[in-house]
Amino acid sequence: MTKRKQKDLFPVKIIDNQEIVPGVFSLETEKKFDFIPGQVVAVAMNPTDEPRLYSIASGNKKDFIRLIFDVNPHGKLTPQLAKLSKGDKLYMSKPFGKFLGTVEPAWWIATGTGIAPFISMAESDMYVGKKLIHGAKTPAEFLFSELFVQTLGESYLRFATREVGPGINSGRLTSWLKDLKELPGDVLFYLCGNPDMVVEVRDILVGKGIAIEKVIAEIYF
């Protein structure tokens, strides 16, 4: 989820809504508009409400739009989103934004539900030449990891800070980046997740000689 932005909203029907890990939901709605992987939509329960922004987390050839979100018990929107069922109505804007997937070689770096735009890119066949650096607290929090294992193979690196499991590295992804002796200068770096991670990773990349124009960031709150 990204910062608020006022947009015209349109009614869409809920197709499915599942809690995929405790406190995290995958919500699917009918698809009324085409989009570029990486774009966001503004979402609200009512057309007069102040919307919140969510990255689309589904491939652009699918016949639905998927959003993933974690529930904030004190939030105004996510507790209501979690209660939606098939056939219910939600209000959504046309897709927009500049965090756009391309076929160019890139490193994707994400934490939490910041993985959403990379799900969209991978399901849209934009995974060739990509490396995903994925951070979480526990193995269960690597959302859609099967998709990335299948599409990226050894170019999918997971870092967990509390628990580890098969194929998962222990520690923070930022520590791994700091320890790298060099970074590729001919790829783009897409950063998506909480603000602290995005700022820290951006500073690490620039400090290692990556041109700032090669760093594309999307901040989640």
Results as ranks from 00 to 15, higher is better:
Ser175Pro: 00
Ala106Met: 07
Glu50Ala: 11
Ile20Leu: 08
Lys131Arg: 12
Arg4Glu: 10
Asp63Leu: 06
Met126Tyr: 11
Lys131Pro: 01
Gly59Glu: 04
Glu182Trp: 09
Ile212Met: 13
Tyr190His: 14
Ala122Ser: 12
Val199Met: 15
Val198Phe: 11
Ala211Tyr: 06
Gly101His: 08
Trp107Tyr: 15
Tyr91Ala: 01
Lys3Phe: 07
Val103Asp: 15
Lys98Trp: 14
Glu163Thr: 13
Leu53Val: 14
Ala211Asn: 11
Phe142Asp: 01
Ile115Gly: 00
Ile219Ala: 05
Tyr127Ile: 01
Lys214His: 15
Tyr220Arg: 10
Ser93Pro: 07
Gly165Trp: 00
Ser93His: 08
Thr48Ile: 09
Asn72Leu: 05
Leu180Arg: 15
Asp8Tyr: 10
Asn46Gln: 14
Glu28Ala: 11
Leu84Glu: 01
Lys61Gln: 13
Leu67His: 02
Ala211His: 12
Glu200Ser: 14
Glu154Asp: 10
Leu205Arg: 06
Ala110Phe: 08
Val199Tyr: 15
Phe10Ala: 03
Glu218Pro: 00
Gly97Trp: 12
Gly193Val: 06
Asp34Pro: 02
Asp179Ile: 08
Val103Tyr: 14
Arg52Leu: 11
Phe118Glu: 04
Pro47Cys: 07
Arg66Asn: 07
Asp125Cys: 02
Arg202Ser: 14
Gly185Thr: 05
Cys192Asn: 07
Ile56Val: 08
Phe96Thr: 09
Phe99Ser: 03
Ile119Asp: 01
Thr174Pro: 04
Leu188Trp: 10
Gly101Val: 07
Leu177Gly: 03
Ala106Gln: 09
Glu154Leu: 09
Val198Gly: 11
Thr138Ser: 11
Asp34Phe: 04
Val103Gln: 15
Ile212Asp: 15
Ser26Tyr: 00
Lys7Arg: 15
Val199Cys: 14
Leu100Val: 07
Gly171Cys: 04
Val164Gly: 03
Leu188Gln: 11
Thr102His: 12
Pro117Phe: 02
Pro184Ile: 06
Glu213Val: 02
Ala42Arg: 01
Ser120Gly: 05
Asn46Leu: 13
Ser85Asn: 12
Ile168Phe: 13
Glu218Gln: 08
Lys62Gly: 02
Phe118Ile: 04
Ile204Ser: 03
Ile20His: 08
Tyr127Phe: 13
Gln80Lys: 15
Asp49Ala: 10
Gly193Gln: 04
Val43Ala: 03
Asp70Ile: 01
Tyr91Gln: 02
Arg158Met: 15
Leu143Ala: 05
Lys208Met: 00
Ala110Ser: 13
Tyr54Lys: 09
Leu205Ser: 11
Arg162Ala: 03
Ser58Glu: 03
Phe96Asn: 03
Phe144Ser: 12
Ile109Ala: 00
Tyr54Arg: 13
Ile216Val: 14
Leu90Thr: 01
Glu213Asp: 15
Pro47Ile: 14
Leu188Gly: 08
Ile119Gln: 02
Asp88Pro: 02
Leu9Met: 04
Gly97Ser: 12
Met197Thr: 02
Thr111Gly: 08
Thr113His: 10
Gly171Leu: 08
Ile65Val: 13
Val43Trp: 05
Asn72Trp: 04
His74Trp: 07
Gly171Met: 05
Val40Arg: 04
Gly38Cys: 12
Phe189Tyr: 15
Ser26His: 06
Thr161Arg: 09
